[in-house]
Simulated assay, not measured.
Amino acid sequence: MTTIVHLELQLDAGRLEEAATVIRETLEATRAWPGNEGLEVIVDDADPARVVVVEQWASTADHDAYAAWRLTPEGAHQLAEIVVARPVKTIYSRRIPLDS
C-alpha cells in the first residue's frame, strides 16, 4: 500500500533563495531512491518560510530504508543549515475507505 510522508520545515526566512537550492539538491537523492513514487514541495501562502515536502512511497518499508540511509554519512544532507526549527515528519499509510 502506498505511504504518504509529510516533512514540514520552517526555513530561515533570510535564506529562502539558498534554501530552494538546498532543497532541490537534497531531494534529487530522495527522488532516485527505490520505492519513491513522487514528491513535491508545497509552500505556505501565509508564511513562505514554511514548506512541506510531500513524498509518496510504494511502501512504509521503502521510506524506512530511505530514512535510515539519511542517517549515514553517505546520506547526509544540508537541510539542517537552512531550517530554524526541528522538522516534523508525519507518515500516512492507512486510509479510511470512502465507498460503501
Rank of each mutant, 00 (worst) to 15 (best):
T21D: 06
V41D: 00
L71H: 12
D64L: 14
E81H: 09
E28Q: 11
P97Q: 11
A19H: 01
D44G: 02
T26H: 06
A13E: 07
I91D: 00
D45S: 09
V5A: 05
L11G: 03
V84G: 07
Q78R: 14
A65R: 09
E55N: 07
A76C: 06
A76K: 08
A65D: 02
S100L: 14
A67G: 07
I96E: 05
R86T: 12
G75N: 10
T26A: 12
I23V: 10
P97W: 11
V84Y: 08
L7D: 04
Y66S: 00
A13S: 10
R31Q: 09
L16S: 07
Y66W: 08
R24A: 08
L7T: 13
H77R: 04
I91S: 06
L9G: 04
E25V: 06
A80E: 12
E8Q: 15
R95N: 11
I96T: 12
L27Y: 08
V52K: 05
A13V: 09
L98T: 15
E55M: 10
R50F: 04
E17T: 08
D64E: 15
R95D: 13
V43S: 05
G14F: 09
S59M: 05
V52G: 04
I96A: 09
H77S: 13
L11D: 02
V5S: 01
D64W: 05
I4M: 09
S100D: 14
L11P: 00
L16V: 13
P87I: 08
R70L: 04
V43R: 10
R15F: 08
D44A: 10
V53F: 04
N36A: 04
L39S: 05
T3W: 03
D62G: 01
Y92A: 09
R94T: 15
A85Q: 12
V22H: 01
L16A: 06
A68Q: 11
I23E: 03
T3F: 00
G14S: 04
L39Q: 06
